[in-house]
């Protein structure tokens, strides 16, 4: 079983994730933007639109304006989750020496900082998730729109994070960066995982990895599609719009009614 989870499932889960996402994105792409449903006030340039969408993606701007409590919980949850994902790359890829490599600290301090950040973010994200779960059960409106899967998504993330946190807090369940790096290198080079490798003997690590892979496999078939979905939809409603030029023909003041507003088109349009 451990062997299956560590050696075979990763290829399956990555394949399902990739193909699933391509299927979903392909379906979206085959639909059209039939009407102009730009949400106004809209920017007038592409750059402006990109800035708007970035502010939505990074700061959750709309949500901030609409619901501060939910914004706090969800922004903290998403950002710490994002930090943790980045941390995995740094820890496993660079063995936690990233701060050392960029010349900020000594090698030991870098690893220490890396661990400290990982551990604290692990707690923060858990708190964020617990808040979201509490909210889903406590606020009547949210309860009324929830399906069973909405709770399961949260429970799944909580389980993954808990397994990760256990590895941080219980030294004998934890695992160092090097053996994991070796393991990932094996996967990437398609070479066999051998029984004496440390990853094979760390049950909590195996559970953590199993849960992550399950999540990867259902991601393209669940509401987790909101990750690409947000960009796809914002691209429809947060586009630049150029106003038609004002001014009426035959009126002596203010031009002829054509192109009188600084080069803007005579009839409005989406850029």
């Amino acid at each position: 079983m451990t062997y299956f989870i560590l050696q075979i499932l990763p290829y399956i889960s990555v394949a399902v994730l990739t193909i699933g996402l391509l299927y979903r994105l392909g379906r979206w792409a085959s639909g059209r933007i039939v009407h102009n449903i730009t949400l106004t006030p809209a920017p007038t340039t592409q750059t402006g639109a990109v800035v708007d969408i970035a502010a939505e993606a990074i700061l959750f701007k709309s949500l901030f304006k609409a619901d501060k409590t939910l914004w706090t919980g969800s922004w903290i949850m998403h950002m710490s989750l994002f930090a943790i994902l980045g941390g995995h790359v740094m820890g496993i890829g660079l063995l936690g020496l990233q701060f050392y490599y960029i010349g900020l600290t000594s090698a030991e301090t870098s690893e220490y900082l890396s661990n400290l950040l990982g551990t604290s973010m692990g707690i923060v994200v858990l708190l964020g998730l617990l808040y979201l779960l509490y909210r889903r059960m406590a606020i009547n409106e949210v309860k009324m729109i929830s399906a069973p899967s909405d709770y399961l998504h949260l429970l799944m993330l909580i389980a993954i994070i808990t397994a990760g946190n256990l590895m941080r807090f219980v030294p004998e369940w934890g695992i160092h960066y090097e053996p994991v790096r070796d393991y990932v290198a094996h996967l990437l080079t398609f070479s066999a995982v051998t029984p004496e490798m440390e990853v094979m003997h760390k049950p909590v690590f195996v559970i953590h990895l199993l849960l992550v892979q399950v999540l990867m496999m259902y991601l393209p078939f669940s509401k987790l599609l909101h990750i690409p979905g947000m960009f796809a939809h914002r691209w429809i409603i947060n586009r630049p719009y150029v106003e038609p030029a004002p001014g009426m023909p035959g009126v002596t003041v203010g031009g002829s009614g054509h192109n009188v507003s600084g080069g803007h088109s005579a009839s409005g349009e989406v850029q």
Binding site: S30, L70, D150
Partner: peptide
Amino acid sequence: LGEKFRSLMLTFESCVKCGACAENCHTY
């Protein structure tokens, strides 16, 4: 309709049921 309107398909497939919209609809 779903296949034609991308906005519609996205609205169907990306909602996370966060409920932020509830208190912002005057009909509710």
